[in-house]
Design a protein around this nucleic acid. Sequence first.
DNA 1: ACTGTAACGCACAGTACTTGGCATTAAGTC
DNA 2: GACTTAATGCCAAGTACTGTGCGTTACAGT
Lengths: 183, 183
Amino acid sequence: MVAESGPRRRTGGRSAVVLTSIRKAVEELITEGGSEAITIPMVAERAGVNHSSIYRRWGDARTMINDLATYRLDPERGLPDTGDLRADLTAWAQELIGHYSIPVNAALLRGGAAAAGERESDCLRDRRAEAAGFAARSGSTFSGDDVIDRVVAPIIYRAVFLPWTLTEADVHTYVDELCDRSA
Amino acid sequence: MVAESGPRRRTGGRSAVVLTSIRKAVEELITEGGSEAITIPMVAERAGVNHSSIYRRWGDARTMINDLATYRLDPERGLPDTGDLRADLTAWAQELIGHYSIPVNAALLRGGAAAAGERESDCLRDRRAEAAGFAARSGSTFSGDDVIDRVVAPIIYRAVFLPWTLTEADVHTYVDELCDRSA
DNA sequence: ACTGTAACGCACAGTACTTGGCATTAAGTC
DNA sequence: GACTTAATGCCAAGTACTGTGCGTTACAGT
């Protein structure tokens, strides 16, 4: 998934089918037993794919899961942009909550968390870029870090550690406190 | 580590030495390669302990790591309580930052995150109990959930996903916004 | 000290994962 | 449609992890 130079990649046809099968299998398995219970032979068997194909593509389960987690929310999907910053932020935050309310996405997030802390291993980098985009629209009312601290962090914290409370996250209060800061 | 009824446990002497050795080995290994790269034979070899002792005590690596992560910050250590709630909260938050600034603690936290989402598998439950204690002292100014959302979540988010920015977390602002809410 | 037994070390068997060579299939290009 | 070769499937060997039975050690309580 990372852009590479070199020989022409084959992204369609059979390769695409294999990738789709693998993704489906990983998501099923991760929902059932979490990210740490996944092995490559398990994925291969459920996907109906030979295990050597997976080893060659990713090398190990950790790399595979992190890769699949990173691209689970399409970075090209487009962000809310009605001109009303507060409404757009709220809609965006609610999209995040909806996304991580689905068990498979929360489980993938936990897998990404386990692999985090290293450079180039961050399944939330696209989310931070989106936060920075909103901050830019705010002038200097708040920064990208402020969006992370006050809106993204509470949502992600709940998604990882307290998934059953995720829908109770009070998005409106988060956004209001962010937009109405006296600082 | 979990309190159990039944036959009298042996917590001292050789058992304590074994546990200490295992803890040290796990912390070294997790610092070196993250929580997912750990296997029980690796821990056993480095700790100079037979692997069967580890299998019998925890069963699998995931359970072991989550258990060690849960009790890394002693729940009995005592909390700041000078009478100045704002100062106490600030000191507590700074203690958390100091704790997770140490790479091994952050790595253990990631290991705990990977195992989270299941009941009885939550390495931050003691932190939430502490947050609830502060909330109780505040009367009804803020709740335990508020402390989590506004103070704990930003710190934990950074510790897991952006450890190199953890020390930039603005504890004073977090606490001020929590204590000065107009709501 | 003496006793009961929890916890440990050792050894072995069973299972599962990992890796590479080789043949086959089919995506991308002209 | 023909060609190049990326990607996959198959297989087999090597390696590592998992789990248990049994004897030994030594903690905890008397």
